[in-house]
Amino acid sequence: MVALRRVGEGLVTLFLVALVTYFFTSKMPGNEAAVICGPSGPACIRHETALLYLNHPFFARFFHWLGELFQGHLGLTLAPPIPISTVLLAAYPITLELIIYSQVIAIVVAIPAAMYGALRANRMFDKVSTAASFATLSLPNFIVGPLLVLIFAVKLAWFPGPASNVPSLWSDPGQNLYVMFLPSLTLAVGSIAVYQRLLRADMIATLEEDYILMARAKGLSTARILFRHALRPSTFSTMTVGGVQIGGLIAGAIIAETVFSLHGLGSVLTAAVAAKDLPTVQAVTIIVAVFYILCNLLIDFLYTLIDPRGRRGRRA
């Protein structure tokens, strides 16, 4: 039941996002028909206007577009006219990989750092990692990216610099990970800091709980207490924030793609905005919204997995 309601809420959100996106993009200056036809003359413009429903009222146009969207017809890019779906299919892996890799890096770094910091709160390691978190939180992606390029690509030459060819994960996973590492790290830096701060704070609170004392009284090792008893109850706010900041990650991905000249959704979007390619802008926005909603559904699901109290259950 709860799951169904969540999915329903997601659909409502999606509809609103579609409406707002369509409204604002249709208010952008410029005429799509004119852009398509270029110098071809008024006959072409009349033809395209009819084809694109441009002479219909706003809501008629919107629902026509939405109907097409539901059938999987994203339309054509304006110039040259190729299916938007083709463009997106070519571009989305880069962005998706960027986001997933960055989150894997963030989790792998943040969880141990937060645990160790919480275990020895206010001692050396904790103070250093706290300071490092604050420092990285105040660094924007467009500074971190070039900085990483400068250090690891230019000076040390450990990793390839921008504008490298990215093979697909399936054809050459090693090279893919190698090339994507710096862009992913750029995106991860902010997440590491956020997750480390939140998890450390919650972990410190959890370690004060009676059940941790009881686990200690059972003679369990510190590692076992941390991983088996303290980690899961400490992850709730970190997970919530993780879901919320996916929006920020997408924005960050656009910056990282720009810095590293990667051809992902971000570069498709910026190019489309610059070319006044409204159908493409709309399509990318909708895809991003779907992704955002799916991620948050996933997090809701993870919640019930981690916290049994959220589930419907028997009572004694």
């Binding site: 009881m214 009284a217 003679g219 981690i306």
Partner: peptide, 25 residues
Amino acid sequence: ELRELWGDQIAMVFQDPVTSLNPVV
């Protein structure tokens, strides 16, 4: 060394049973 005794030779029952049990285990 104490840990080898704790829970094995010496055990403790705490004040508040509800908070003494880990809610997610």
